[in-house]
C-alpha cells in the first residue's frame, strides 16, 4: 500500500483513497478505542468520529507516520467520550464488566482448551478490570505502551505531553496494576502475585 500516495489523493478529495487507509487501520483504531473506553459501542463511535475528523483535518497532516497521527486523533476522541461520561456519571465498574462478558474480545479469543480458555478469560478480565480502574491518563499511556507497543516518544507525541510525564504515567500505571492484580490472586498464576 502506497500510504503517502493515498494520503495525497485523499487530500485532493479522493474519498475512496482515504477509505483504503480506513480499512487498513480501522482494527487498530478500534482496538485502542475499545481498550481505552472498555465499551464496544462507545469504541465504535469514537473510531468513526476519529476517521471523520481525520479526513476533515487531512490538510493539517504534515507527513510522518499516519498511524501515529490516527492514534492521536482516536485518543482525543476517547478523551472526549470519557469527559462526556464523567458529565453523565454513567461510568461504573459493574456495567463495564457486564459489557465485557459479551465483548468481541471473548469472541476473538482462540484458546483451544475449555479450561485454558476459562483461565485466560479470567486473567484477561482481571487485567481489563484493573486497567479500567486506572486514571484515564495512566490507562491510555499503559495501553499505548503495552497493548499497542508504542515507545515513550511516540506516546508523548500522541498524548501531547512530555517524555517524563509518559514515563511517570506508565510507571504508576504498572504499580497500580500490580497492586490491583493482587485482589485476583487466586485467579492468577504465581508470577502475578505480589511477593512479600
Amino acid at each position: 500500500m502506497d500510504e503517502q500516495g493515498l494520503i495525497k489523493q485523499a487530500k485532493d478529495g479522493d474519498v475512496n483513497a482515504y477509505n483504503t487507509l480506513v480499512l487498513h487501520y480501522q482494527n487498530t483504531v478500534y482496538n485502542v478505542a475499545y481498550r481505552i473506553l472498555g465499551d464496544p459501542a462507545s469504541a465504535a463511535d469514537a473510531s468513526q468520529d476519529a476517521f471523520i475528523s481525520a479526513y476533515k483535518a487531512l490538510g493539517r497532516f504534515r507527513g510522518g507516520s499516519f498511524k501515529s497521527w490516527m492514534m492521536r486523533i482516536v485518543t482525543n476522541a476517547c478523551y472526549d467520550e470519557l469527559r462526556r461520561r464523567k458529565r453523565r456519571r454513567q461510568s461504573s465498574l459493574d456495567e463495564i464488566t457486564d459489557e465485557n462478558e459479551s465483548s468481541p474480545l471473548l469472541i476473538s479469543d482462540k484458546s483451544p482448551q475449555p479450561e485454558e480458555h476459562q483461565g485466560r478469560t479470567e486473567l484477561v478480565l482481571a487485567i481489563e478490570s484493573c486497567l479500567e480502574g486506572l486514571p484515564d491518563e495512566q490507562r491510555i499511556a499503559a495501553i499505548l505502551c503495552d497493548v499497542e507497543g508504542y515507545d515513550y516518544k511516540e506516546i508523548a507525541d500522541m498524548m501531547s505531553v512530555s517524555l517524563g510525564t509518559v514515563k511517570s504515567r506508565i510507571s504508576r500505571a504498572r504499580a497500580k496494576l500490580r497492586d490491583c492484580l493482587q485482589t485476583f490472586a487466586e485467579l492468577l498464576p504465581a508470577q502475578y502475585r505480589h511477593q512479600t
Binding site: 482515504y18 482494527n27 483504531v29 482496538n31 476517521f51 503495552d146
Partner: peptide, 22 residues
Amino acid sequence: AIKDAISQLPRVRAPRSFTLDP
C-alpha cells in the same frame, strides 16, 4: 509478567466498517 499479560490481551476486530460515504 504483567506487561506480557497486558500485551497478550486479545486483539479485537472492528464490529463494522468505518469507511466514509464518498
